[in-house]
Design a protein around this nucleic acid. Structure first.
Lengths: 213, 213
DNA sequence: TCGAGAACCCGACCAACGTACTAGTGTCCA
DNA sequence: TGGACACTAGTACGTTGGTCGGGTTCTCGA
């Protein structure tokens, strides 16, 4: 009774921003599988159904969390278009890898302001470089898809134990997969340089197509 | 009692293959969100816990389902390496789009025989073309990631209603995203040619790197 | 032919989940 | 001083993935 911790009159009012921030922290710490409305509420020192005053469903929380981390991607300030795009894409990828739960969540429509800001910049830069029409669309989508795909697979395979188990499995079935077993397809890949190299190839292809128009 | 429909003596015994086939059918029909062990069991005319005799967890079912659809991807029979790779990658993408629930599931380690068979072919073809070392790894990963990313975004956005809603949202905020609004970034994209074009750019970049070594 | 053991299946149950509904509690303006 | 509003706690429901232990059917050697 007297010890009752003075209900109401909380230190800080619950807001959507605080919920999203807590969700990102929880996702970073424990992964997508362990994000629960109850756990999220617990982190905020609040009862679970209370969250639904600020948020409509759990999916909303996920969408907001995805957009929130995209705010970390700085919009580059560079003149030369390949440099600008390289900078954007690398930062974008780095953010997704910092939050490995995010790539699989891109399988839902994401239209948050931070995501769109990035797409806007990408499109504008490519137009500035001279891309138009189908070439423009192909370049935009291609770069985005390449980046997303890379982040998705890397965030899947970067855990050492999964990696080693995969290699063991391949070597155990070396007769079925001779090339993979022989060439160490999955051995110590330096994902950073791998991505950079693939990106360079793609940009080279784009530049070549640009010259031919 | 007397009416009891002669239990046991089922028409066909339950097997992992039948479970996986039913899972794929259910996923195709209703999407990943509605795959439930109970619903799956119902489709197989079986009680839910029975599934756990053949399968350890629900995740196993998902992993098996992903690998199962990769069996649809034919291994091309072509001499010229770019043609072979183009054929493989296009078929691969087509099956993922036929089963739109699959791309987001690639965010889990997939080591099924069908998946590996495809990777083996990709690697072998690139080696035949002359790629080695880091170039080889970059090409393999790049192609795979580009394909996966494309399938992921396309399977997300290909529903017309989502598409239209997105465009309406962008146009409503045309001041924040002038380029996107002006250039109809999301309007009637022909994803097929978009992908083909992006793939060509990437292959061109790879071929260029190959000549320089 | 028969009987033991393996293979297979199910009813009942559990904890945890997302979330609708209700009943407050505090704050602020008339 | 008394509502009106904004916010929160509590209770509860239906569904989910998964376990347990006890049945039932099948297989196969003797």
């Amino acid at each position: 009774m007297w010890l009752r911790p003075a209900k109401g009159r909380r230190d800080a009012p619950l807001t959507v921003d605080r919920i999203v921030a807590a969700a990102v922290a929880l996702l970073d710490a424990e992964g997508a599988g362990r994000l629960t409305m109850r756990r999220l509420a617990e982190r905020l020192d609040v009862a679970a159904p209370t969250l639904y005053w600020h948020v409509k469903t759990k999916d909303d929380v996920l969408d907001l969390a995805v957009d929130a981390i995209f705010a970390e991607v700085p919009v580059p300030d560079e003149d030369e278009w390949t440099g600008a795009i390289r900078a954007l894409v690398l930062a974008w990828r780095a953010t997704m890898l910092r939050h490995p739960w995010s790539p699989p969540l891109l399988g839902r429509p994401t239209l948050g302001p931070n995501v769109l800001r990035r797409t806007e910049f990408l499109q504008r830069t490519l137009i500035g470089a001279g891309f138009r029409g189908a070439d423009l669309a192909a370049a935009t989508h291609g770069l985005a898809n390449f980046t997303i795909g890379s982040a998705l697979t890397q965030s899947t395979w970067q855990h050492a134990d999964i990696h080693n188990a995969a290699n063991a499995h391949i070597r155990a079935n070396a007769d079925a997969y001779p090339t993979l077993a022989a060439h160490d397809h999955l051995d110590h890949p330096d994902y950073d340089t791998l991505f950079r190299q693939g990106l360079d190839r793609f940009l080279a292809g784009l530049a070549g197509a640009l010259r031919n128009t």
